[in-house]
Amino acid sequence: MVNHSLLRPELRPPVQMALLDDILGIVRANSLWPMTFGIACCSIEMMAAGASRFDLDRFGAGVFRPSPRQSDVMIVAGTISKKMAPTVLTLYEQMPAPKWVIAMGNCAISGGPFVYDKQYAIVNGTDVILPVDVYVPGCPPRPEALIQGFLELQDKLTKGGKTNFIRHFKRWPRKEQP
């Protein structure tokens, strides 16, 4: 779902289903089911984020669905080799429509340590092949960072967290960005 509040005024659609959009945004933000899918070492941290001590399930994001047909979020956790890229793209295309991508770790953001001369095997970042919603930096990022990424994604779906009133956990108030 496009969050219209993030768009420039002239790009916003003339008719918005305001209440329905808000409700769907809240509902989708609080039920982000990730795909069971890890490419490299970042996925170990992703598993830790789902396990005890970190517990992604608190925010309703702990239902790791094995099938792309039933998942909402794709966490690209690791290095995408050029051989793997078509598979990742296929998995993304198999997901049903309101879908989001979290690029986790430096390899998924920009290629990380694999950016050097005559490098032939690694895709330099997820956004070369997929539209990415949230970038989680780190090598690998700690589980808390991934949870932070999920909260950012929730904010993105609920007008900066303003309409996400059914979630108890409140973020530290941030300065408005110009």
Partner: peptide, 21 residues
């Protein structure tokens, strides 16, 4: 772990939210 906790008291709204989604 704790399980669903943030959506509604003790996370009771979690499955309703999942269903609407």
């Amino acid at each position: 772990r704790i399980g669903p906790k943030e959506v509604g008291p003790f996370g009771v709204l979690q499955t309703i939210v999942d269903g609407i989604k």
